[in-house]
Amino acid sequence: MKPVISIKEITKIYHVGEIQVHALRGVDLAVQSGEFLSIMGASGSGKSTLMNVIGCLDVPTSGSYHLDDIDVSSLSRDAYADIRNEKIGFVFQGFNLLPRTSALENVELPLFYDRRHRIKNPQHAAREALERVGLADRMHHVPSQLSGGQQQRVAIARALVNQPSILLADEPTGNLDSRTSIEVMSVFQELNGQGITVLLVTHEEDISQYTKRIVYMRDGHILRDQKIEKPVSARQDLEKKMEEADAAAL
């Protein structure tokens, strides 16, 4: 089976004045369809840089990148934009929702740039995506009226709405408390269970335990690549937490 993501010898050098910062020093990675992968590592190890390259938000200095068998490294700026629209759903640590704009309109945003009209009924698709993340009753709320966990679920719905090949998330639980983090992870697990490929960056060991494969990074290299045989179920953790809370209340 052909991998969805195939990365070979990717490097990324940032120029800050006279200084060169080697953020990625030759990374190889292959991800199969349906995988749930987490990238772990200390701050500054190059996780976000790798994620941005995979998400076509940034261009690598050298190396090759194939997404769905398309050689992305040779594409134009506009084609990059189209790839982001059709094949990638990106979830950020800081949610990145449009302010003063309803959840529904935020989720519809990618479909506004759906040039080939892949999705026939944008409103309907946006509603469906919000239902999938359990926010059907908050459609007309603006971000300031939503909790952090709810905002992140709107962002996930936005990432899903264009039916992407891969779902990318850079520290999606970084701004959330532990309980809400588990909630968000259960959403990702559910989506992965429906067959969506998910890659997420985290520096928390607990969070990575909910994924099926962990890639460890250090100084722009991949250090270790490890399969998890039995991932923890976020839903079960959540139920356990609730029972504990109930017990404490009694």
């Binding site: 934009a81 189209d82 990106f90 990145n96 929702l97 945003l109 740039y113």
Partner: peptide
């Protein structure tokens, strides 16, 4: 930031 968000979901420069 809005421009960044729009671009990240597929807006072209034009």
């Amino acid at each position: 930031r809005e421009i960044g968000i729009r671009m990240s979901v597929g807006a072209r420069g034009r």
